[in-house]
């Protein structure tokens, strides 16, 4: 696969949220405002890129048997770095995201990419894969949070979109809005896939199966 494809596959074709249905907890929890969605997306991208590169770098030295604990330690380290840096330089964002910053550790996208990609690909490819998947995650968060913020608050990045008379549909900002938005978005993506089934779309079932296998491996190793 070319470098460009390695980077862009995560954007839509193998989007971690809409296609693989990974990393759902933060996807729902931090998407009431676009600002929070972007912050979360970039934080996760940073961790994903760093852990992918480091794991690819040491992939030949890591014994198979204890790779999962090592991956977890590596990921957790980068998460704590993000936690500290965010607290120091972006305290309001750090407060808004709350416990979902430490919870990046258990975001299945990151461990999933380490297991499925970084541990048997070169550093360069792992970097591109991490960046692409991370940006794909960010794109998903921005799409969901835009819908929720525009309809639920009537604003985008804090700036009013509609005139004075707009009555925001608060339900979209509240917890149910998160479930409903992502439910219908997943439905939309499934509908698009169904329509294009005979064309060039990747086989989602195969990807999901691959994900199942990944979970299985994680389970055994844990």
């Amino acid at each position: 696969m070319s470098a460009f494809k390695e980077l862009t596959k995560g954007f839509f074709k193998e989007n971690p949220v809409f296609v693989l249905a990974l990393g759902l907890c933060p996807t729902l929890a931090v998407t009431s405002l676009v600002e929070k969605g972007i912050g979360m997306g970039l934080a996760a991208t940073f961790v994903l890129v760093c852990s992918n590169v480091l794991i690819a770098l040491i992939r030949k030295m890591v014994p198979k048997k204890i790779r999962i604990p090592i991956f977890i330690v590596i990921i957790a380290t980068f998460v704590v770095i993000v936690e500290l840096v965010m607290k120091a330089y972006l305290p309001p964002l750090s407060e808004a995201l709350g416990i979902f910053i430490p919870l990046i550790v258990v975001n299945c996208i990151i461990l999933g990419r380490a297991e499925a990609f970084a541990q048997n690909h070169s550093v360069g490819k792992s970097f591109l894969d991490g960046l692409g998947m991370g940006l794909g995650f960010t794109i998903a968060l921005v799409i969901i949070s835009s819908i929720r913020e525009i309809i639920g608050f009537g604003t985008f990045l804090g700036l009013p979109v509609f005139g004075e008379g707009y009555q925001p549909a608060t339900i979209l900002i509240l917890q149910p809005g998160a479930f409903l938005t992502i439910g219908f978005l997943l439905g939309f993506f499934a509908w698009r896939r169904n329509r294009k089934k005979n064309k060039t779309m990747p086989d989602v079932e195969a990807l999901r199966a691959q994900r199942e296998k990944m979970t299985q491996v994680t389970r055994e190793a844990a």
């Binding site: 249905a21 509240l174 149910p176 998160a178 479930f179 409903l180 439910g183 219908f184 439905g187 499934a190």
Partner: peptide
């Protein structure tokens, strides 16, 4: 259930409705 909504999508919508109740 409509074909595109089967599986995860409808589960999320259901969870959303339950969430309204818990609200």
């Amino acid at each position: 259930v409509p074909k595109a909504m089967r599986g995860l999508p409808i589960a999320f919508v259901t969870a959303g409705l339950m969430s309204i109740a818990f609200l």
